[in-house]
């Protein structure tokens, strides 16, 4: 599904100085697998997620990333989305004046068009989204509000998962989706994610804490530090990290 080879990336700061953020990432996520990427703040986890989605703030200096045989680096962000990549943002942006439902319908139909599916008409769309919202235990008033505007942190994250359910991606990357969620919201989010889990889909969970992984149980756990994956293992690795922190890994480097 997702193959990343020796990916290097950097960013230019305000003073036009180049700062390396990713220093050779190798990652292979097979269909049906759930991978967790953990690591301390500033290790480059979110950067990796954003680069995969096509955020142009970062400069990819070396390496490649493939999704289902497509070279991601050749594609514009919307084509990556159409190819089945979904990023649940850490900080979903507010878009004032743009109605949530209108936005989602446009997105769903745009992606469907790429996949050569007929567009959903208003009725079908409404039925579908109402079902998904029920799954997520979301209030229907949500639909009439502007995208993320005035949403609480938890509402924004739920909205991200709702969008994911509607867009049915092949690869979903969840960037710190657990941050700022209370336990109820966390469970709802996990339920949404798990409902999407099947043998064809892959999920990459980027997180700082082990907490979310109690609900979305990963097949593989990677630890990222200073722009590199320094250790990979099974789900037990997450528990070990929870217990010992990241310090012990740094010292073995």
């Amino acid at each position: 599904m997702l193959i990343i080879k020796n990916l290097h990336a950097s960013i230019r700061d305000e003073k036009q100085k180049t700062k390396k953020i990713l220093c050779g990432i190798d990652l292979h996520v097979k269909s049906g697998e759930v991978h967790a990427i953990m690591g301390p703040n500033g290790s480059g986890k979110s950067t990796l997620a954003n680069i995969l989605a096509g955020q142009k703030e970062y400069e990819v200096t070396q390496g490649e990333a493939w999704l289902d045989g497509k070279n991601l680096m050749d594609l514009e962000p919307e084509s990556r989305a159409a190819a089945g990549l979904f990023l649940a943002f850490q900080y979903p942006v507010e878009i004032p004046g743009v109605n949530n439902m209108y936005f989602l319908k446009a997105a769903v139909n745009s992606v469907r068009k790429h996949r050569q599916l007929p567009p959903l008409d208003a009725m079908d769309f409404l039925t579908l989204i109402k079902n998904k919202m029920k799954e997520m235990e979301m209030d229907e008033k949500f639909l009439s509000r502007a995208v993320n505007e005035g949403f609480s942190g938890g509402e924004k994250k739920c909205n991200e998962i709702l969008q994911m359910l509607m867009l049915e991606p092949k690869l979903a990357i969840l960037d710190e989706t657990d941050s700022g969620l209370d336990i109820d919201a966390l469970q709802r989010v996990a339920k949404g994610v798990n409902s999407l889990r099947d043998f064809k889909r892959s999920i990459v969970v980027v997180t700082h804490y082990q907490r979310l992984l109690n609900y979305i149980v990963p097949d593989v756990v990677h630890v990222m530090m200073k722009g590199k994956i320094i250790k990979s293992g099974g789900k037990e690795l997450a528990l070990e990290l929870e217990e010992k922190g990241y310090g012990w890994l740094g010292s073995t480097e």
Binding site: A53, G54, Q55, K56, E76, P77, E78, R80, A81, A82, F86, L87, F89, P92, V93, I95, P96, G97, V98, Y102, F103, L104, A106, A107, V108, S110, V111, H114, A146, V147, Q163, L167
Partner: peptide, 25 residues
């Protein structure tokens, strides 16, 4: 905002038109 819309699969012109319309709402 543009990146967010494009990540959801909207073309850049749709994204701009949507944001501009939202601005004028």
């Amino acid at each position: 905002q543009l990146f967010y819309c494009r990540q959801r699969g909207l073309s850049i012109e749709d994204a701009i038109s949507m944001i501009v319309n939202g601005f004028c709402k």
